[in-house]
């Protein structure tokens, strides 16, 4: 469903100094799978997601979403995306924003408004549909970002830190939404720092440190011999730092 093939990325500063940020990343996310992407700050998680969405280009390597090559083919109709810190046109209302999202994804007007109301209600934003986004709290904006990725019911969800900025109730809500997507056979690729959520939700995980992929596999495999994902994650990163 999602395939990364030997992806490298190097940034260049104005003085032509090079900063390699991703080294030889190869892995795949299977259909219907929930794949959690872990790593400390600055590991390169968001950079990899930006390359996957064609916001930036890989220095080398190839990426595919359902056999569509990133950078060559149009794939956006297949995905729902949530950025790390979603920003909106603040003078629009939540409903107007969702209407825009649905219309750009070719949704028909007859089903769009109903879908928008239902999605807002599912994310506990039913009361705020006609409010300008500038009046939304940080958590409400995060939930609206999720609503934008859900509105057109895509096959694949790419969520960059979906739990960030949410209170425990908000995190529970998003966890439930992701579990619902799993039940419906959708593919979810998300990054997170919150290891308990990863443990609860993911079929498989990938661990990235300093731009190198240290581990891909099931959650069960990584916690063999350890107490939980957090302990295994810390051990893996520490071992890599020593190298």
């Amino acid at each position: 469903m999602i395939l990364f093939k030997r992806v490298h990325k190097t940034f260049y500063s104005a003085g032509f100094r090079s900063y390699p940020v991703l080294h030889d990343i190869s892995f795949s996310v299977e259909p219907g799978e929930i794949f959690g992407f872990l790593g400390p700050n600055g590991a390169g998680k968001s950079t990899l997601i930006k390359i996957l969405l064609n916001f930036i280009q890989a220095s080398s390597g190839e990426l595919f979403i359902r056999n569509l090559k990133i950078g060559r083919d149009n794939f956006q109709h297949l995905i729902g995306y949530l950025p790390e810190m979603p920003c909106f046109y603040e003078n629009l209302t939540g409903l107007e924003t969702l209407r825009f999202a649905g219309k750009t994804s070719q949704m028909k007007e007859s089903v769009l408004m109903d879908a928008a109301q239902k999605t807002l209600a599912r994310l506990k934003l039913g009361h705020a549909g006609n409010m300008l986004i500038k009046a939304y709290s940080k958590g409400m904006k995060q939930r609206l970002g999720i609503a934008m990725s859900l509105i057109h019911d895509p096959e694949i969800y790419i969520l960059d830190e979906p739990m960030s900025g949410l209170d425990p109730m908000g995190r529970k809500l998003i966890t439930d939404v992701i579990l619902e997507l799993k039940e419906r056979g959708k593919t979810v690729f998300f990054s997170s720092h919150i290891l308990s959520d990863i443990e609860k939700l993911c079929d498989r995980i990938g661990i990235l440190n300093k731009g190198r992929l240290l581990y891909t596999g099931s959650v069960d495999e990584i916690i063999t011999g350890s107490q939980d994902v957090e302990t295994s994650f810390v051990e893996l990163i520490e071992q890599d730092e020593v190298r």
């Binding site: 149009n74 995306y81 950025p83 979603p86 920003c87 750009t104």
Partner: peptide, 14 residues
Amino acid sequence: EKKTIYLILSRPIS
């Protein structure tokens, strides 16, 4: 700067 553009370019808009 605020990356509002992500929400547009992640849709089928070139």
